[in-house]
Write a protein that binds this DNA or RNA. Structure first.
Lengths: 360, 360
DNA sequence: GTGAAAGCGCTAACAT
DNA sequence: ATGTTAGCGCTTTCAC
């Protein structure tokens, strides 16, 4: 591998000059620049990553800790998001470090470790909790991070989130308009922020519509298709079973659909089911699933943008040119997505879309 | 962040001595060792990652390039595999760098880039092709890698693979025993190694069983549920439609099941469908899918083991202790999984399992 | 416009 | 058993 030194020898200049020529400093003579550039080109020079990182005290790396694949986390969601993050990070020369929480190891200790070892410049968080230990740690450490999702306490941390409250307004109105008055829901644990927000919204909008939702219609704490099946089965065995089941993700909805079928209901006729996320399979399910769509991959990209902004902010502007270039390259966010934003566009709420299909 | 220098000052020793004390060299006095260790502990010393990497010419990082999420790649598979890789890598202090192929960018150029920038010590490859440009590049560059899957040309590269030939033997025998004689199959492009192997095996074992498989029963080039639906629909509209459809992944099978339903067939009675992979949903599909199961997460871990072996091999044994410790920690592979292995246990073939469910 | 020198934090060869 | 020196490859003062 060619180094600056090699180039310097070749063009009879000092390492310093070569470094500056390559970096495009203004105080290098044009001829030197072109000499150096072509020498570098010829010699296939690529800067040594670790040397640069050591010197610059920068890892050029974003960390993403996967809660744990086994948790029944909606897989398709995760892939899409990761793709969005990785591609966007690559645009800025950032790498993506992925860690999966060991069963043994405390998730939060992974964050601690990655910070103390200096392996990442910042983190991306998803599936935030109302009280999120990760967000609290990172705030306390003043370590850069950006979230897909919010936390309950108003933090100054940057985030992108879907407007789950609005999404549930769309769903409940849709169901009420279809004549449903016995509406149940199956969701994740209420400790998860989005799950909490969605449930609140369901309650609120049903109340507005004058629809009562009894306590035993509310099933919180579930993720998987299997969970959806079991909870829906129980719901349908109640003395007064619901005529519609709102599920807080698509997998739960698939399970509920199956439970409905097994109990002899015609899905979309005798009983309605809705999902959330619009994973690829939803469109192909039988019947196709009514659900809420979110541009997951784009969201991943947006979160990267927010994080990189935050990193530079905390670092103080050092690399002037780079900064402005980077900031100007931010993904513009389509206006029709944006519901709300803080004055710095660092906290974004996106408008989700209701996709009406065969299950309602 | 405390550095070796800080510790050295504290204990009145040189940086070198501190470094060696921490590394556990034998030529440091016991008291110095304990002094240094406790000082390090107190000061919360953590070695600077980038300094170590620069100095050691090691990235302590494994690269994994995701072909592209949109390609219809079986998502659940990807997650499980990644989890296995990440966890195992973490056991050895290795990081996992994940890159997603940009739509614009040539996939192979990502490998080139990561190599020339010195960002990873080795790669993990999945979904290998019969002629695999990545494997060829890495062989040519003599850069460490390990594969989940084989390539057509016999390479000395380490791999783990399922015995797809055997898997298809199980499937065809199962179907033939159930009385099927009109058997079709839907698979990925034949350029993909596993798809090719599976197809060959299907042909071979059907021939052995005296079952003829006409050309128009063979549909290669597909990945997604949608593909599965469309191809199955066409198959079922043939003058002589098949009575069984072998699909080379579970998503294809889901599509085929739906096509069968839509055409008025009773799945598992009028028409049989089989999948491959046993993703979580397969068990919950309607009807539950007969398929081939593989321990994906474990396989991810095994591939990491092979890769780390290869990395150390190419590097020459430098860190004696570390090496032996590492090698001794390898995941033992259950005997009942192992079908075949080369003499160094660097090329492993695993025995897949047939899971019989409702679609046959 | 260019170069010498210093240093990021670590490790290792070579003294002593 | 310990310290001195050197250097990984890069960037950034600071001097000329």
């Amino acid at each position: 591998m060619a180094t600056l030194k090699d180039i310097a020898q070749r063009v009879n200049r000092s390492v310093t000059t070569v470094s500056r020529a390559l970096a495009g400093y203004s105080d290098v003579s044009p001829e030197t620049i072109s000499q150096v550039r072509s020498a570098a080109e010829e010699m296939g020079y690529v800067p040594n990553t670790m040397a640069r990182r050591l010197r610059n005290r920068s890892t050029e790396t974003i960390g993403f800790v996967v809660p744990d694949s086994s948790g029944g986390y909606s897989e398709a969601f995760f892939n899409e998001f990761l793709a969005g993050v990785s591609k966007r990070a690559a645009d800025f020369g950032y790498d993506l470090l992925v860690a999966v929480a060991h069963d043994k190891e405390d998730e939060i200790s992974i964050y601690r470790k990655l910070i103390s070892e200096g392996k990442v410049d910042g983190f991306i968080l998803t599936r935030t909790y109302r009280m999120d230990a990760r967000a609290e740690l990172l705030m306390k450490e003043n370590f850069p991070f950006a979230m897909f999702g919010r936390v309950e306490k108003a933090l100054s941390a940057p985030y992108v989130d879907e407007d789950g409250t609005y999404a549930m307004k769309l769903i409940t109105e849709h169901l009420v308009n279809r004549g449903h008055s016995r509406i149940a829901c199956i969701g994740q644990p209420e400790s998860i922020m989005f799950s909490h927000l969605r449930l609140q919204s369901v309650k609120e909008h049903l109340a507005t519509a004058g629809v009562h939702i009894p306590e035993d219609y509310i099933r919180m704490g579930y993720f998987s298709q299997k969970d959806g099946y079991e909870q829906a089965r129980e719901l349908l065995r109640l003395p007064t079973p619901p005529s519609a089941i709102i599920c807080f993700n698509d997998l739960l909805a698939f399970g509920a659909v199956n439970a409905g079928k097994d109990a002899g209901f015609r899905i979309g006729k005798d009983i309605a089911v809705t999902g959330f996320d619009d994973i690829p399979m939803s469109e192909h399910y039988r019947p196709p699933l009514t659900t809420i769509s979110q541009p997951i991959q784009s969201i991943g990209g947006m979160v990267v943008d927010l994080l990189l902004d935050r990193i530079q902010e905390l670092r103080g502007i050092t690399l002037q040119e780079h900064v402005s270039e980077v900031t100007s390259r931010r993904i513009p966010i389509p206006e029709h997505w944006k519901v709300e934003a803080d004055h710095h566009n660092h906290q974004l709420l996106l408008k989700p879309e209701l996709i009406i299909r065969g299950t309602t």
